[in-house]
Design a protein around this nucleic acid. Structure first.
Length: 426
RNA sequence: GUGGGUGUAGCUCAAAUGGUUAGAGUGCCGGGUUGUGGCCCCGGAGGUUGAGGGUUCAAGUCCCUUCACUCACCCCA
């Protein structure tokens, strides 16, 4: 019989790797909390309708990437492809805005998109999401970026680039869009097949094209930033000013777009050169129209999503992130010693001393080999001989020095010895 | 969804133009005389060569199908 394999594009995260995940999640909780964010946990399954409205009918995600099924024949449900829609849904459903007009929320968890897997792209992947709801002030936009950059630096991320843009608002974007379409119409024959298709479906996306010939054509294209209405322009200028106060100097990427109508003003991305074609580590922006789109009041919001797999792939593992090494190994010989070892080891563990015992009934040599392999700094050796004499052997694995300790009060003696050697116990 | 590449022990890889019981390193288990790790030495286990079909006297090697992984496009985290 064949062994069952994981679903395509779904990955197991195995032990040494999980240490990195714990590190980054701990760091995120710490940093985000410092910036006033509270954790929210939302379901990974939602009514399909939520995403159709919250992400947009015409997007690739909704058109062809969602895991959707008919539940018991009467309702379509979808495994969430992103978290913002769910957070907004929960926020509106529980009228959180009634208790406090401004909410800062974050969440960490898996997302699902049925795309063809490749480097940095899984079908189940994980995002770290943060949202600020209820305020449209550009200083909030800047603050979100400040937190983000601080987080990335503390995560040890090398070589990153912040790009920002403004997408305008429903007042000013249509004019830009019209001018762009007019401009492109004249260039049509010079553009690649994809871009000609994009002209119709999502003209702003043409700026994403990587072909040199298309890029050249776009050099003289109209720029969204030249079309911003006064309020949007002021917002963007203030946003930039506060970034500079925080010593953050992004590059402006007028080609960065979010195609949907309710995305407004600030948009940003952090990219890296180390990820192949999937170079975005994180993306975010303002979505002042979203709450309304979901049937709620007109509440502004801004947020971002960090791709954890992508982020983690950029971080070199260090000792703090790897599985912690045990404090000591208990080796024993004989039945009587085995009973003492069992009791002793579990007692030590209960007070936060990471203790290893090998119950496989192997030779002392084998047990010592294992202690060495696990990198245990100390080994306790107890045989029936020692037990009978009321003592045990305490071996320092680095110096190979060994001393005899009395069985009486052993528990406290060990605690003391470990503390004295600078081991950090709980 | 489209195109390219790759699938041989747990892992990293060998097996010239098809030709005996598919090898190595590493890891794992054990041993190197009484109950002591690392280095070293010795031994052992572990593979229906991703799966299924075909060509052939003979297939890990060639052909087809399928699955998986991977890179790129698309799109995005």
């Amino acid at each position: 019989m064949d062994t069952i394999q994981a679903v395509r594009g779904f990955k197991d995260i195995l032990p040494p790797e999980t240490g990195k995940w714990q590190f980054i999640e701990r760091l995120a909780r710490e940093v985000f909390t410092d910036f006033g964010f509270l954790e929210i946990r939302v379901p990974i399954l939602e009514k399909t309708e939520l995403f159709r409205r919250g992400i947009g009918e015409a997007t690739d995600i909704v058109e062809k990437e969602m895991y959707t099924f008919l539940d018991r024949g009467d309702e379509y449900l979808t495994l969430r492809p992103e978290a913002t829609a769910s957070i907004l849904r929960a926020y509106l459903e529980h009228t959180l805005y009634a208790a406090d007009p401004i909410a800062r929320l974050f969440t960490i968890g898996p997302m699902f998109r049925r795309e063809r897997p490749q480097k940095g792209r899984l079908r189940q992947f994980h995002q770290l999401d943060a949202e600020i709801l209820g305020i449209d002030d550009p200083r909030v936009d800047a603050e979100l970026i400040v937190m983000l950059m601080h987080f990335l630096v503390r995560a040890g991320l090398p070589d990153i680039h912040l790009e920002i843009n403004s997408l305008g608002c429903p007042d000013c974007r249509p004019a830009f869009r019209d001018r762009l379409i007019t401009f492109l119409a004249g260039k049509q024959t010079a553009l690649c097949e994809d871009c000609r298709r994009r002209m119709l479906s999502n003209p702003l996306r043409i700026f994403d094209c990587k072909l040199e010939t298309c890029r050249e054509q776009l050099l003289s294209a109209p720029k969204i930033l030249d079309f911003l209405c006064p309020p949007c322009d002021t917002h963007f200028q203030t946003f930039r000013k506060y970034l500079s106060i925080a010593d953050i100097t992004p590059s402006i990427n007028a080609g960065m777009v979010r195609g949907l109508d309710y995305y407004t003003r600030t948009a940003f991305e952090v990219t890296t050169g180390a990820l192949g074609a999937q170079n975005a580590v994180l993306g975010g922006g303002r979505y002042n129209g979203l709450a309304r789109e979901l049937g709620g009041p007109d509440i502004p919001g801004i947020g971002f999503a960090i791709g954890l797999e992508r982020l983690l792939s950029l971080i070199e593992p260090n000792d703090a992130q790897l599985s912690p090494v045990p404090h000591l190994f208990v080796a024993f010989l004989g039945d009587q010693a085995g009973r003492v070892a069992f009791d002793l080891a579990n007692g030590l563990r209960k007070v936060g001393i990471r203790t290893e015992v090998d119950y496989a009934g192997r030779s002392l040599k084998s047990q010592m080999r294992r202690a060495n392999k696990l990198n245990c700094p100390y080994t306790l050796i107890l045989g029936d001989r020692e037990i009978a004499a009321g003592e045990v052997q305490w071996r320092d694995m680095r110096s190979s020095l060994q001393e005899t300790l009395p069985l009486d009060g052993l528990f406290e003696t060990i605690r003391g010895k470990l503390l004295e050697k600078g081991q950090t116990l709980v």
